[in-house]
């Protein structure tokens, strides 16, 4: 009799534990799903000197100090309708760009290290032009400069005029006697401040800021620039093994059998 009681109490305890675990699972899955949905688009433009997106979302305590420090009211904390990690700072360059204050008050006010002053410090001096909030990308179809109409609004607006945006002169084949003056972004130097996007005169901006990770492609380490002495050195250090054996190509040509289907 006693044994039966023990059994049933053990069974009851087991049931409670199972139910508890189930509830935790339910809560965890629902919560995790919702949180991830709120988590945001990768297209968010962060303040200067921000850590990489995944690290930034971890590190930001969402206090809004950077927002308060910004003298241009560029920054805002994300609300639930912003499609960005809730409570984290971001800005929309088309509305208000970053004016690259030389003393970077937003970065200095950050208590958590999510904005890392080291990223914009060079030889112990603050250099706001080192910031990488994003990179400007031109839509050559809607940019009227590419149509042959003269417009250099983005070039003039760029705080690194002649460096981050350059003008390239091309012959206008349509008229045969004019130039097409194209804006060209230097991705190495562009800070992503968005003054160009802000200044763009087309209805929807034809030059927009994208996060660096989104805008930039990657060739892969197996491409080596033979004309670049430094890059070519990689050929000695690379550990990647070729997917094709050195002899396979030759063997393939010397073995006519394999060229035909059975």
């Amino acid at each position: 009799m006693k044994k039966v009681q023990e059994d049933s109490s053990r069974r009851a305890a087991l049931k409670t534990m199972l139910r508890g675990a189930g509830l935790m699972g339910l809560g965890g899955a629902a919560w995790g799903g919702v949180a991830d949905g709120l988590q945001a688009s990768e297209l968010t433009i962060r303040p200067p000197a921000a850590l990489k997106e995944a690290e930034f979302v971890k590190a930001c305590i969402r206090c809004g100090s950077c927002v308060e420090a910004c003298p241009y009211d560029t920054l805002a904390l994300a609300t639930p309708d912003d499609r960005t990690a809730i409570g984290t700072p971001y800005f929309k360059p088309r509305t208000t760009p970053c004016y690259l204050c030389t003393d970077a008050p937003c970065v200095k006010e950050c208590p958590s290290g999510a904005l890392d002053i080291g990223k914009i410090t060079e030889n112990d001096l603050l250099n706001i032009n080192k910031s990488k909030m994003g990179v400007a990308v031109v839509d050559q179809n809607s940019c009227i400069a590419f149509w042959g109409i003269q417009c250099d609004a983005c070039y003039r607006a760029c705080p690194l005029l002649g460096e981050a945006i350059n003008l390239k002169f091309e012959r206008n084949d349509r008229t045969g006697k004019h130039a097409i003056i194209e804006p060209v972004v230097n991705r190495e130097l562009c800070t992503g401040c968005g003054l160009c996007e802000h200044a763009c005169i087309t209805e929807k901006p034809s030059i927009v800021i994208l996060p660096v990770d989104i805008a930039n492609g990657k060739a892969g380490s197996h491409y080596i620039k033979s004309w670049d002495k430094n890059d070519e050195k990689r050929i000695n250090t690379t550990k990647e093994k070729s997917a094709v054996e050195a002899n396979t190509a030759e063997d393939y040509l010397n073995d006519p059998e394999s060229l035909f289907d059975d």
Binding site: W31, G32, V34, A35, Q39, A54, K58, A85, I86
Partner: peptide
């Protein structure tokens, strides 16, 4: 890998 309660 982010503060889970803070986002909700």
């Amino acid at each position: 890998a982010y503060a889970a309660f803070e986002v909700v």
